[in-house]
Amino acid sequence: MKPLSPHDWETLSAYLDGELSSQEKARLEARLWKDASLRNALDELGRTRLALRNLPRLRAPRNFTLSRKMVAVKPAPRLYPFFGFASALATVFLLVVLLMDFLGFGEPARPPVALMQLTQTAIQVAAERNITPAEESLPAPTEAIAASQLAAPPPEATPASPEMPMAKRAASEETALPTETPVVAEEGLALKMVAPETETPADSGEATPTDPALREGISSVEVATDTIQVEEATPAPTETPVFTETQWPTETVTLTETASPTPSPIPTATDTPTPEIIASETATEAPLLATAVAALPPTPLPTQSALTSAEVRPTTLQWAEGGLAAFALLSGLLGLALYLWRRRS
């Protein structure tokens, strides 16, 4: 006798309850007529069903009517809503503090770290070159120079023939360069730099392009002219770089600023023409930017570790963020625990 499949039992069960469609019913009755084992299975299932249906309906042992006291809603524990509200409130405050932090409120006044690092770099470069500032005190560069230097792209050192006179050289460069704005050489902007004889390739007659690191340092000093009083700089000690006028001709550095295709964001592009800085031995009254570099007091510069610790130290807002996040999390978890405990009980 072939055992019936679960589907066969399901069909027989539904047949007993009259839940088969007419088509299914006709198909099953055709099988029942042919298959005796299927008929036996149907009989046995019918007997079980009948026994179940003959079970008496029980009478309730008592009345289950309700009283007002039975249907009164149990008051919820007081702490659960409190913690839920506290968690929500802390979350709102946390969002506010995060927003304030994002917008930059509450930041402590920090020294211009990047600027001072650049200045330090400039000093180091100058020290490596063994450059000493001039003996005489020189006026500080004007703000216009600083602004124009800052606004313009890094100047390219134009190689020039050492035999050519300086003024003539400047003129030739002025005509040779395809600039849209006139290039002006200002005497006041002349930069005098002298490298030691041993390091100067002037003997070979070639002009050395300005060191990019040094130019970067000088630019940073110019940016800092708002805060650093270069005029008050005293002659630097002997170890500091020194610029001397007499040694200059061996190395002439021409810093040429050409007008870039994109407009300069600094308003001096319209008010004053883009300056061309020419290191000239004749410009004795010109401000020596390197002197300013050398005149920077070495002690106030923050060390690297001091800078790092200043950056790592959390601010008040960060403390608030951490505290609020911890409070919101704890109160939320407590509220959830109370809620689950209430449901279990």
């Binding site: 679960p6 039992w9 399901e10 069960s13 539904a14 309850d17 299932l45 069903r49 179940l52």
Partner: peptide, 11 residues
């Protein structure tokens, strides 16, 4: 339908 058939079979 399925649970009923299996329950009846077990009973």
């Amino acid at each position: 339908k399925s649970r009923l058939a299996r329950a009846r079979l077990r009973l």
